[in-house]
Design a protein around this nucleic acid. Sequence first.
DNA 1: CTGAAAGCGCTTACAG
DNA 2: CTGAAAGCGCTTACAG
Lengths: 331, 331
Amino acid sequence: MNKRVTIADVARTAGVSMMTVSRVVNDSGPVSESTRQRVLLAVGELGYRPSGLARGLATRRTATIGLVVPDVANPFFAGVAKGVEQIAYAEGYNVFLGNTGEDPEHELTLLQSLEEKRVDGLILCSSRLPEADLRQALQWHGATVLVNRQLEGFGAVLVDDQRGAIALVEHLLSGGRRRIGMLAGPETSHSCRLRLLGYDSVLQEAGMQRRQGWMLRCAPDVAGGRQGAINLLQAYPELDALLCFNDLVAVGALQAAAELGRSVPDDLAITGFDDIPLAALMTPPLTTCSVPVFDLGDQAMRLLLEQIGGCDEGCERIVLAPELVIRGSAP
Amino acid sequence: MNKRVTIADVARTAGVSMMTVSRVVNDSGPVSESTRQRVLLAVGELGYRPSGLARGLATRRTATIGLVVPDVANPFFAGVAKGVEQIAYAEGYNVFLGNTGEDPEHELTLLQSLEEKRVDGLILCSSRLPEADLRQALQWHGATVLVNRQLEGFGAVLVDDQRGAIALVEHLLSGGRRRIGMLAGPETSHSCRLRLLGYDSVLQEAGMQRRQGWMLRCAPDVAGGRQGAINLLQAYPELDALLCFNDLVAVGALQAAAELGRSVPDDLAITGFDDIPLAALMTPPLTTCSVPVFDLGDQAMRLLLEQIGGCDEGCERIVLAPELVIRGSAP
DNA sequence: CTGAAAGCGCTTACAG
DNA sequence: CTGAAAGCGCTTACAG
């Protein structure tokens, strides 16, 4: 590989100063048309490509943001990533993707490495960090938008998880279900806490005791859901409905139900959360709560851009309302 | 936001030179234990975090790679991304994710911006660029690994697409299907070209003419597959099997079949490609070709690391064999 | 409209 | 074991 061509090379062959080259490349400051042409010619000839590193060092802006998610293989986060990337691209930003694999330590390390890369902003989805750790990690960063998690002082794009869970449970009750179990997600999940709250509140309001063992946690993916459902249903065969943490878990529960010979929805109702594309395609299709994933990413990126731009409104909280979607798994 | 602490600040408070701070931070070169402790203390006290920009400028290595895919929302690419990210993380690299949305221009711009960011390496998945453009874009970059596409002189991790398609079509023939249509992907897809080749070769060998209209292209996602299948099946109701470009398209075809009142597999067999998690969960479950997506990403990243490390073997081609997975949609 | 100087925050040789 | 100087490739004030 040849030596890289630098701004000095361009300046030399165009017979101008580096300053002038910089001016035409960035379109900053006035340059006479003839000079501009000469510089542009040299740029093309040499195949000059400015170094983002050097530029970033000088300007303190890198045109780079970080996006951290627990699991890209979950269509929910893939959707968010797609939304973020699209706006980022349109605005000239590159995005670092970090996948924590649900591991808080991994998350922490990622946050630190992104800060060392001097990202202009950070979008952190469904952080699994305890509040103290989260706060500390975020203080390294400048502009930050949280998704699916709130923390005082930080901009966030949220889904009203509690309301979603309430709608789901009320729907199950109105369908005559009385023994509703819950396959919850990780304890570290903020969304999960809120959904549990919703679940409990409806049961309490209906004057129904929540039986101790009816709530079980599992890994928030299909395999976790399947295993969780098997355990829960074997221990409590009397359950007539399963409120699942998300659609992936619900899909696993659907599998488990089939394996255990429980018929859905007659014998057992199952609900998910998120309404990932997969949800509508199951047999039976999943009753769930629809969350506009693409918008989540889109809005998060816009909010972040406002913050980066120095706008104070960048710290607002945007709450998207989830929408009950009734399908065959819990009609 | 306070002024950032720099290596000079650390040096000052520790009472040593910047050089010494650099030595302990990077664990390069000898430093006396007592000095090391003093520096470490200052680092902790000030919360010093070295600038990757400055370091990158000086060392010409950024510990950063680029990953470019057509669509992260496709579980296939999400799986690849997960594989890449995992190895990258373990090796101390951050990864830029670029989503082209199947748009070649977007892809080109992305490739250029990644080069400006001075990534140490690039993993390009299923490039939709014509060979000439691709070559030119890649010459900007150093280490490069292609996934799902080959180009002389470049390392690649591939799936034997042709063989996969052959296995699928032979399976359909052995199941008694004689009028096999194909829902192909974008013309820009290298994989698609190879799968088409496989499809044609089997038909030819079986002495069957491939009817002109039986091949139709569609967007490589669920919506595209649904629409494509509707168009194809309405024009050629005599088709008794549909070889789909990938699982997403096959899922769309499954929907279309239901809408058109065609029963799968009795009246119409449908096959996919990739074996994304979704495939096994459909009703009927999808017959498809299994591609180890996570391994694709994993291997690509390992190959890239070899190249970055200067190993000449980094240019080898790894070909993964797809595996026929027979399920209900084409038993 | 154009340029010379200093600086962004590190590391690479070179000395000692 | 430790440090002073120069350089990585840009841009930001300041002059002219």
